[in-house]
């Protein structure tokens, strides 16, 4: 994917901005423009709090191009407290300590670098919440 596409998604990558349906209240991340619950097209931006629990995960040993430097890395599905699932890397943890159901929070980290200039794309990853909930 080219850099411009990442830039256009900066509200999502940096702030977890999704949408909320103004008619039925359903919340979406990634943002939707049509509500799949009530079919309304009246949706507003909604910033998620960035906390939730790990629904599932894997440790990738054979990466796609651009992710070689992180191998082996953990990617997971995080169930946000507001409901939606987010697909993201799980960071700041040993693979052996990752557990389904553990509390996690969003952090902003390097996703990958592009080309000879090494332009860095940042975005959300999630890490275990050590204290509190």
């Amino acid at each position: 994917m080219d850099l411009a596409r990442h830039w256009r998604l900066k509200d999502q990558r940096y702030r977890l901005e999704g949408t909320v349906c103004a008619e039925c209240g359903a919340k979406f991340f990634p943002p939707r423009q049509v509500c799949t619950e009530c079919k309304s097209t009246n949706l507003k931006p909604h910033e998620f709090a960035g906390r939730g629990e790990l629904y599932s995960f894997t440790t990738v040993s054979a990466p796609p191009s651009g992710h070689e430097e992180f191998v082996p890395y953990i990617v997971g599905m995080v169930k946000l407290d507001e409901g939606p699932l987010v697909e993201a890397q799980i960071t700041d943890v040993n693979p052996a300590d990752v557990k389904i159901g553990q509390r996690v929070e969003m952090v902003t980290r390097k996703l990958r670098a592009y080309g000879d200039d090494g332009v860095i794309v940042y975005g959300y990853k999630f890490r275990p919440i050590v204290n509190g909930s």
Partner: peptide, 17 residues
């Protein structure tokens, strides 16, 4: 895919769930 998911990764996440 920007999160680093691969096809084996998707099915692996189904497997752990």
């Amino acid at each position: 895919t920007p999160a680093g998911f691969t096809f084996p990764g998707f099915y692996a996440a189904m497997a752990t769930a």
